[in-house]
Design a protein around this nucleic acid. Sequence first.
DNA 1: CCTGAGCAGACTGTATACAGTTAACGCGCT
DNA 2: AGCGCGTTAACTGTATACAGTCTGCTCAGG
Lengths: 251, 251
Amino acid sequence: MSIEKTSDRALSQTVKAQLALRELVLRGALNPGERVSELQMVERLGVSRTPVRMALVRLEEEGLLEAIPSGGFAVKAFSEKEVFISIEIRGTLEGLAARLAAERGVGRSELLEAAACLDEIDEVVRREMLEIDLSQYVELNARFHRILIDMADSPPLARQIERASALPFASASALVPVQSRSPELHHILTVAQDQHRCVLTAIERREGSRAEAIMREHARIAHRNLERALTNQRDMDLVPGSALIKRRIRA
Amino acid sequence: MSIEKTSDRALSQTVKAQLALRELVLRGALNPGERVSELQMVERLGVSRTPVRMALVRLEEEGLLEAIPSGGFAVKAFSEKEVFISIEIRGTLEGLAARLAAERGVGRSELLEAAACLDEIDEVVRREMLEIDLSQYVELNARFHRILIDMADSPPLARQIERASALPFASASALVPVQSRSPELHHILTVAQDQHRCVLTAIERREGSRAEAIMREHARIAHRNLERALTNQRDMDLVPGSALIKRRIRA
DNA sequence: CCTGAGCAGACTGTATACAGTTAACGCGCT
DNA sequence: AGCGCGTTAACTGTATACAGTCTGCTCAGG
């Protein structure tokens, strides 16, 4: 009504509001702890109160907002510990997925698809020493993780992992960009990729327990990246949603 | 407006609708796969469309409903496998909680509270051989699990476990009543209680890995109960929400 | 100058009206 | 009699109006 009217025809107002609001929160346009006023969002997003309300509820379920006792929602602030445990939760669930995949056994075609994805990552990592653009790696990494989760063939688990990855810095590749300035970049990517290969081998050989352990440890790479980001503001800025993380010291 | 007007003053319409709708779904008043019409619920619950809509969204996040592509929601039907994996997810997360509790170390007062809870359960189990009422056991069991989760001191993990336990038959004590007719009842409760004691000891001694393994195995008792319920309709009827589970054979 | 009470503003929770779309039902044609 | 098409009815998505409540500010009293 106020901004634009002739775009995004196919998108429902609710989805539009949800995307826009998430973007605002992750960009740090709204300060953590701050109340998110419906009416303000109405004029900021150009949709009416109903879809805004809907978006608020969904983002609260997603974990980006929290309900205020007296009503309404506020931007959630995350402590370092909360981020840490969120990563651990994701790793645990992905570990479970890997174990299930190994125990049930996966078809040849799925294994080949995963292997092909890993080959592509290999290629990117090899080039990576020269080029700094990580976007392709991030995308391929996300794809491999998705393939892995699909291998478990368990919608409820997939859903739960999606939940766990909703916190922006908890997802599989959210903290990868932190290493972009690091000389260790190639080292880290090499190790991560080796874990990818190992877990796939384990699944192929039906070694459930091993597959699980590898995926758990794999997620802990994010712990290291988090540690690094927390001590370096410049690295922090590379992470979407970093504004939501309470800094260690603020003096 | 249609049914009653002078009750539940303190409850918001949204919460009222959510509770009533959940009750309807779990009782099996709505058939799995069936669309849940907003207007029908309006006249059935006595609140207007807005709170009903809100309740529908929340119950979908909870996992009891699923979105219909063309709009609206339908009652979700669960396959045997989905129930199985849901239990496994809960066990895995509770295992993580136990490990975290062990690794961080918990205070004396918390340990004592948990031990006191276990003593109460002991008493109930001892009596249980005569009396058939399991409600007290179910309540105490839930309390112990809650204490355990609190020991991890991780709100994000607690939240995720709550999510995983939202599916009625996935929660810690949903399938306990299945055993109420069984001569094995005392046996099962004894084993479960031993696991409770063991996990508490493990946490006390900071044996994280052991605590985790025990909690995982502990959850798998529910697998057995599920197995039993699936082969016996009479047992099945004791489980709230059993109407949502697709039976093995339906001929 | 400080404290407490009252008032005003804003904000959320709720209800309902409206429009676009989907789906079902019935009728006609083959 | 079966199939396809058109019409109709219901349902969801959206917008907005209304009422209760909480918060924060101001003014008066100590």
